[in-house]
Design a protein around this nucleic acid. Structure first.
Lengths: 196, 196, 196, 196
DNA sequence: ACCTAACCGAGACGGTACGTCGCGTCTTCCC
DNA sequence: GGGAAGACGCGACGTACCGTCTCGGTTAGGT
């Protein structure tokens, strides 16, 4: 897992094996250019040049720019900053703090570019979208926090937890899309909206 | 409304006035090509040819493809299908039906292309994002439905209504981004998630 | 003569007469831009802007860029530097000095640009070619010098004088076209070639 | 000869080598369009289309339209009709016949277009001018004829032969520029002018 | 004193061509 | 056969000018 887009099967072949150096150089170059120039200024030619690699070497292993970015996400080269909700026992407070962190990141310099780039990449490659919400903590960490809240009796057990996360993350994405700047109370209001 | 991207300020200028025929032809062509080919196969050259217009006439009045699409949305040329929640008195049922309609549209042939295209366009132009959620009914119609629910005592008056809509629409957008197909119960679960 | 491309006939018309200010501004602007940017970077739009004049005002009175330049030559706004052969009594020496002056001008900074521009303009407008050789002194001044030489017995009376001038000027133009730089003795050799 | 604009130096480079097929297709298309439409209706886009070649492939190897035409001349694809003076022993008669041929060509349909096109091309690219006079026979063939005349005692040995040719060819070019139609005796007068 | 045709400035219009960028494929030499 | 390099056909970009047309404003005869 995380070996690049094509998983090497064990069929025996002649000739040299895939160059790990090239694979890493390509992903590094992709991540570097993604962060500095954004997804839509990311070009295959630019990546090849930055990685000192022939274009064919990229096309041999990845079918598209989106797949390349998806692999960068898998390797954790992009969007290093994960957002995990704390567990102080107070679900509402924890969610608000978590959201405030995310909204702050989105509003900060470069943050919205990053999110926009990820959204654009998600349009090109299916798994990027999944990774996007995962990096925002929704899929795993947020789910765990919700389960803890259910166990603590702060959340009704029949609430669909995945959808709860989707709603929160989705609202953030929507704000990023419409470039609505978030005021200080926005995180609180959003939590109020879904928790009641 | 429908004045185009540049709002004509009242300063007097000599010379010919902007051609309404060209403006309409361009927006029509944009809408036509957007629906038939999707946002990322939309080209300025294609629009100019389809509208029988010089490229410069487009660039004179719109800075980008995104702005063009945003104007099409403003004029209601795109995404004609608006989604408005009914008011049967039962908020939960109404929201579920409304969401089911939207999710069905997104999953249906062409629907996800349309949403993906709008998301891509939103990345290029700020106001497209706002229009996107508006067309989904969130900003105005959904807000009205929520207010009716508050009046009917079905919704706590201190729930932030805008954020409630954002959460629902955002979840839909997130699903579209990650291309998660929605099962029959998805709409219900989503409503359960936010209404508790 | 020199009133611009269209000679005003005396038929009576209503309305304002042609604006002399505009005519002069246009020719001045043309000459200014011709000298600074060369014939092929000369544009109708540039001239109109430089002259603070509508494009239509240019097209109303001149059919082409070449005609405009031809009028500039007629008015003496271009290529102010005329070359006239002296008459010291020694035809060979006078011609050599005259040619040296011309060749020097062509080789000097900007000179070949000017000649190239005039040649290019001549391609667009017939009378520019005639003006070109006239400004080089060939048509009138050189002819007069030749007649004096005939009278002084330095030149056989059956030599065709016009062709003699054409040969000398033509050789200069050819050198300008092929951008052959002329050495110090070139003028002398050229005179030797035609005078024998 | 015929190596194209860029002379390949022998430094070794990796990667694909320049496509000879593309080079030839481009030059052929250029010659074809030059002859049919003239230099100033020659467009890079037209050449690319005619040659079934990408525009970039042209710009990769030639900096301008003029360079392209210069290469066509080098390859002998243009102006196939060379003019060579005969040697009947009578220099004056031979030169007159040769000039009459050239002047006739220039005056004939298409001839002046060709010369004007070459003159225009010469303005864009230095070597075209040199090729122009070469194709008119001046540089090599005419020089040879002059040497024969010197050997035969018909021409003084101290006459500068190159300049003699320049004078004759230059006069022709000048006539083409000023679009002066040549009468039947023009060739004779021109020869009289330079031979005395 | 109007009327109105023609001038003027400004510049929008439908076009053509420009020169550049990036795509994904193909070709060459080297390891 | 993988890899670096990069030429290739191609499509689109955004810009520059072309020559025409359309405005409002101005200027003179004509009535």
């Amino acid at each position: 897992m995380g070996d690049g887009y094509h998983v090497l099967v064990s069929e025996h072949r002649r000739g040299p094996v895939r160059s790990e150096a090239a694979r890493v150089a390509i992903l590094d170059a992709t991540a570097r250019l993604f962060e500095s120039r954004g997804y839509d200024h990311l070009t295959m030619e630019g990546i090849a040049a930055e990685a000192h690699v022939g274009k064919q070497t990229i096309y041999r292993w990845w079918p598209s720019k989106g797949a390349l970015v998806a692999d960068c996400l898998l390797e954790g080269l992009l969007f290093r900053q994960g957002f995990s909700p704390a567990d102080t026992g107070d679900l509402r407070a924890d969610l608000t703090a978590w959201l405030r962190g995310i909204l702050g990141f989105v509003d900060r310099e470069g943050g919205d570019t990053m999110v926009h780039s990820l959204i654009a990449a998600a349009g090109d490659h299916p798994s990027v979208g999944a990774r996007l919400s995962e990096q925002l903590g929704a899929n795993s960490l947020l789910h765990a926090r919700f389960e803890a809240a259910v166990a603590a009796g702060q959340l009704s057990p029949d609430r669909p937890l995945d959808e709860l996360g989707d709603a929160l993350v989705g609202a953030v994405v929507l704000r990023a899309l419409s470039r609505t700047p978030s005021d200080a109370a926005a995180a609180g209001r959003l939590v109020d909206a879904v928790l009641g």
